[in-house]
């Protein structure tokens, strides 16, 4: 099964939340459907973080915020050589952090 980030779609007003919350921030409904978030979107902003914490064995960690094609937004890591605000991206699920034996999976953005 293909991995994807899971969003939380309000059963009443259809607002998609990421991350999850107990009460919809638009209509205060308490019931959600779990939905797979789309892979495609556009880059809203980004930064190149120098000297990230010890879990990351890189000198510079590229981070970005994207707006996915369904309007839901996501923070994630970025592997794009020359990022530009507004460019089209595709997100993939990869190991984004390793702390000892513990692996964390999350979104990595690539040029579409």
């Amino acid at each position: 099964m293909k991995k994807s980030i899971l969003g939380y779609k309000c059963k009443k007003c259809a607002t998609i939340h990421y991350p999850n919350r107990a009460i919809c921030r638009k209509c205060r409904n308490e019931e959600f459907d779990v939905v797979s978030l789309p892979e495609d979107g556009k880059l809203l902003t980004f930064t190149h973080l120098h000297n990230p914490s010890g879990d990351f064995e890189v000198a510079i960690l590229d981070l970005g915020i994207v707006e996915l094609s369904n309007g839901c937004r996501l923070t994630g890591q970025m592997k794009i050589e020359k990022p530009v605000i507004g460019m089209k991206i595709k997100s993939q699920i990869e190991v984004v952090r390793q702390s000892g034996y513990k692996k964390f999976y999350g979104a990595v953005f690539y040029k579409a």
């Binding site: 990421y18 991350p19 973080l49 990230p52 914490s53 879990d55 990351f56 960690l61 981070l63 996501l74 923070t75 994630g76 890591q77 984004v96 952090r97 964390f104 999350g106 979104a107």
Partner: peptide, 10 residues
């Protein structure tokens, strides 16, 4: 923790 910290967001 899940939507920002795991990515190394500071």
């Amino acid at each position: 923790p899940l939507a920002e910290q795991i990515y190394g967001v500071t």
